[in-house]
Amino acid sequence: HMTFVALYDYVASGETDLSFKKGERLQIVNNTEGDWALAHSLTTGRTGYIPSNYVAPSD
């Protein structure tokens, strides 16, 4: 899985969403939902949907 870094803070709007903080590292599990991606946080160990425009690929 590619690793991504959060560009902004995001507060989950539902139970299936994943909250994260700017700078948090995430792995995209499934990116077939258009503007949303299923992601796993390497920081918190949690998995949920995130807005895909809130993250960018990290080196």
Rank of each mutant, 00 (worst) to 15 (best):
D9T: 06
L38C: 12
V11E: 12
Y54G: 06
G34T: 08
V29M: 14
D35W: 09
G34I: 05
L42C: 11
R46K: 14
H1A: 12
E15P: 14
T3N: 07
V5W: 05
T43Y: 06
V11P: 04
S58Y: 15
L18G: 02
I50G: 00
L26A: 00
Y10D: 00
Y49D: 01
L26F: 15
G14S: 13
A12F: 03
F4V: 14
G34E: 07
V55Q: 04
N30K: 13
Y54F: 12
G45Y: 04
L7R: 05
G23M: 01
V11W: 10
R46C: 10
E33I: 12
S41T: 00
L42D: 04
T3W: 13
L42Q: 07
V55I: 13
H1Y: 13
T47D: 06
L38G: 00
G45W: 02
G45D: 05
A56I: 14
Y8F: 12
D35K: 12
L7Q: 07
L42F: 07
T43F: 06
L38P: 01
L38A: 02
V11A: 08
G45L: 05
I28E: 01
P57W: 13
W36I: 06
N31L: 14
V5M: 06
A6W: 00
Y10N: 01
D17A: 09
W36Q: 05
L18T: 05
E33R: 11
A12C: 05
R25T: 14
V11C: 09
G23A: 03
A12K: 04
V11K: 09
L18P: 06
A12R: 04
Q27H: 12
W36S: 03
G34P: 07
F4M: 10
S19D: 06
G45F: 05
M2W: 10
G34D: 08
G23K: 01
V29G: 05
S58L: 15
V5R: 03
N30V: 12
Q27R: 12
V29E: 08
G48L: 03
L7N: 04
G45C: 07
Y8V: 08
G45Q: 05
P57M: 12
A56M: 11
Y49M: 10
S58E: 15
A6I: 03
A37R: 09
W36G: 03
Y10V: 03
N30A: 14
P51C: 05
L26T: 00
N31C: 14
V29N: 07
R25L: 15
S58P: 09
G34Y: 06
T47G: 05
N53V: 09
I50H: 01
D9N: 06
K22G: 03
T43D: 15
S19I: 06
Y49P: 02
Y8C: 10
D9G: 04
P57Q: 10
V11Q: 11
G34W: 06
G34Q: 06
T44I: 01
N53E: 09
E33V: 11
M2F: 11
M2I: 13
E33G: 14
A37L: 15
V55R: 04
Y8H: 09
V55H: 05
D59M: 12
T16E: 12
K21H: 09
T32N: 10
N31P: 12
L42Y: 06
T32G: 12
H1Q: 12
H40A: 06
T44F: 01
A6V: 11
T44Y: 02
Q27P: 00
P51L: 05
A12Y: 02
D35H: 12
T43H: 08
E33K: 13
I50V: 11
G48V: 01
K22I: 06
T43K: 08
T32R: 10
F20D: 00
H1P: 13
K21W: 05
Y49W: 15
Y10L: 02
V55P: 04
T44R: 00
T43W: 07
V29H: 15
D59E: 12
T16W: 15
L26Y: 01
G14W: 07
H1N: 11
Y8K: 08
Y49I: 08
A39M: 05
L42I: 08
N31V: 14
L38K: 04
T47L: 07
Q27L: 15
T3Q: 08
T16V: 08
G14N: 13
L7T: 06
L18R: 01
G45I: 01
L18I: 11
Y49A: 03
A37P: 09
T43Q: 08
R46V: 06
L7K: 07
N31A: 12
P57D: 08
A39N: 00
G48M: 02
I50E: 01
L18C: 05
G34F: 06
D9R: 01
M2N: 11
Y10W: 07
N31Y: 15
L7M: 08
H40F: 12
A6H: 00
G48A: 04
A12L: 03
E24M: 02
R25A: 09
E15L: 11
D17E: 15
D17K: 10
G45A: 03
D9L: 06
T3F: 12
Y10A: 01
S52T: 15
R25G: 04
H40L: 14
G48C: 03
T16H: 15
V11T: 12
G48Q: 02
T16C: 15
L18N: 03
L7C: 08
H40I: 15
F20W: 02
T47Y: 10
T3L: 12
I28T: 03
Q27E: 11
A39F: 05
F4D: 00
W36A: 03
N53Y: 11
D35E: 13
M2P: 12
E15S: 11
A12Q: 05
D59Y: 13
N30M: 14
L38M: 09
A56K: 11
I28P: 01
V5L: 08
H40P: 00
S52K: 15
Y54H: 09
L7Y: 03
L18W: 03
A12V: 04
T47A: 06
S13Q: 14
P51I: 02
L42T: 06
S52E: 05
V55K: 03
G14D: 08
T43R: 07
A6E: 01
G48D: 02
S41Q: 04
A56Q: 11
Q27T: 12
E15V: 11
A56N: 08
I50L: 03
I50P: 00
Y49T: 03
Q27N: 07
S19F: 05
H1S: 12
Y10G: 00
H1I: 14
T3Y: 14
V29L: 15
Y54W: 07
R25W: 14
